[in-house]
Design a protein around this nucleic acid. Structure first.
Length: 279
DNA sequence: ACCCATGTTCTTTG
DNA sequence: TCAAAGAACATGGG
């Protein structure tokens, strides 16, 4: 479930487990997730010591003692794990780094294989190569406003665009828009400074809340829209409507529809439909 | 059996 | 060139 809070949680896990450790072996169970050819990856990692970790948006970096970095992107279903003996490898472990010293193996787990592992010259080089914008926890309100307001595109796709700000995914964008009381089909160019300010502070609040709960959404405050998503309240057999009610309006049903091809949840009362999006 | 999915990137169409 | 929709990717789970 890797949006920024999950990736930050993974990064902390890796930081505790792997920093200071030397890579003794690189085990590739499925080369599909490699964005760097296996031989190059192995040559670049074997014998290297992991000196630190960092993160940009949904990308996690393992810093190596030669200045290069291993970049992990978790796609839609990526996760990390650790194990000691081969039979204990988590299901769907695609790649494992064997760590000298602790004897642990760091697992890159990814059932759907949309995740990617690659070597890069540096985090900064990767940021530039992939045209990744400022991290969503670092961007200033002024910068966010400037980047959004010069685009006449729907707000939700803009917020999902990692080149504008990095780390927001589908559910977080819905949560942020709900908290800021802004409709996902507003145009970026229509935002007032006050609105983008509200958006910016909602981004900080939602991300920091999620990180503090280690991205376990079931522990999020009751004021969060996320509890209305189907994956929190699965539809009963035979039911086609799993929606629940707005945390702020007990009688208003949360609506689900699609924006930019992505499932989108809103409170029709908190987030009024803009005239430009009237259908 | 069918439909949906937390992401990214490319193609198509206007 | 831009914007928006759709598809593709690969696969599990409801």
């Amino acid at each position: 479930m890797p949006e920024l809070p999950e990736v930050e949680t993974y990064r902390r896990f890796i930081d505790e487990l792997a920093v200071g450790q030397t890579i003794a072996a690189v085990q590739v169970n499925d080369a599909h997730v490699l964005a760097t050819p296996e031989d190059q990856l192995r040559a670049g990692l074997l014998g290297r010591t992991i000196t630190g970790t960092s993160r940009l948006g949904k990308n996690c970096f393992l810093e190596l003692d030669n200045g290069r970095v291993l970049v992990l992107h978790f796609g839609m279903t990526g996760d990390v794990g650790a194990y000691r003996d081969a039979p204990d490898a988590p299901r769907f472990t695609r790649v494992a780094l064997h760590l000298q010293g602790s004897g642990l193996r760091l697992a890159f787990i990814d059932p759907r294989k949309f995740g990617r592992i690659r070597l890069a010259e540096s985090a900064a080089a990767h940021k530039q190569a992939k045209k990744i914008g400022p991290d969503a926890l670092q961007i200033t309100a002024a910068e966010l406003h400037q980047k959004l307001s010069r685009r006449k595109t729907l707000l939700k796709p803009l917020l999902l665009d990692q080149g504008i700000t990095a780390g927001l995914g589908n559910w977080i964008v819905d949560e942020v828009l709900f908290q800021a009381k802004i409709h996902p089909e507003r145009l970026g160019s229509s935002l007032t400074e006050q609105e983008s300010g509200a958006l910016h502070s909602a981004v900080q609040t939602v991300l920091n809340t999620a990180i503090s709960q280690e991205a376990n959404y079931r522990h999020f405050p009751a004021s969060f829209l996320i509890h209305a998503r189907e994956w929190d309240t699965p539809a009963m057999p035979g039911s086609t409507d799993a929606h629940t009610f707005c945390p702020r309006h007990a009688k208003v049903k949360i609506e689900k529809y699609y924006v930019g091809g992505r499932a989108t949840y809103i409170c029709p009362k908190c987030q009024p439909t803009p005239v430009s999006a009237a259908s």
